[in-house]
Design a binder for these strands. Structure first.
Lengths: 109, 109
DNA sequence: ACAATATTTCAATCCTAATTGAATATTCGA
DNA sequence: TCGAATATTCAATTAGGATTGAAATATTGT
């Protein structure tokens, strides 16, 4: 992952609303949610939600597919993993210094 | 880690300059660097650097100690690990869905 | 074609971040 | 104490993100 991609993703995750969107979509996995469901769940005006969804999608953190007149959004788990890897590699590469990261578990919850 | 802390950290890492600062300081480990060394290495005006250092320190990603008239900055590796853990837990908790995160290595590399 | 639904784009406003030079502490060495 | 060095704070400007309602786009069902 290049630096620009990483900073775009970090910027996307720097908004509480967008972090909520991502966490919600991650919980829904491959099923995802359509825009209207997201707006209802998060109690956001549609235009505002649309703005944040666009930001997240452009950053690569979400994917979107059209289903008739609905837009279904899904979290991009590959991107998440890449971002975690980037953070691990670039921000924890010092001389041993007690730098032991937590081992990732499987995601059964 | 609470959501506000996480979003503050993500916002800090959303600037290319600040990401450079963090990566540089991580490489210097416990030794860290004083502000002047950072400014020279990154070729930044002192006031601008000071601004970004303050942002990073307030977000908890850096620590700073005074050494005479110098200010020595160090990356806060604990905070980095916490942020990676937050991202792993909150953004990779779906139903199995191929959600296998890379296992964190030791940081000798 | 028409009306209804779902979502985005547009335009305007507000708020906050980024950048810079000048001024202000604070510390060190002579 | 005085001058030099280090770094931050302040004030001003510029740029970009956040939010909202109205308008536009696209799809469905009749």
């Amino acid at each position: 992952m290049d630096k620009g991609t990483a900073t775009n993703m970090f910027e996307s995750l720097s908004s509480g609303i967008r972090l909520d969107i991502v966490r919600l979509l991650v919980r829904y996995g491959h099923e995802g949610l359509v825009a209207g469901e997201l707006a209802e769940t998060l109690e956001l005006p549609r235009t505002n939600l649309s703005f944040h969804l666009k930001t997240l999608t452009q950053a690569g953190l979400l994917s979107v597919t059209q289903e008739g007149r609905y837009q279904r959004y899904r979290a991009n788990l590959d991107a998440m993993r890449d971002l975690v890897a980037y953070l691990t590699e670039n921000c924890c590469a010092a001389e041993a210094d007690g730098c032991v990261l937590p081992v990732a578990r499987n995601c059964a919850g």
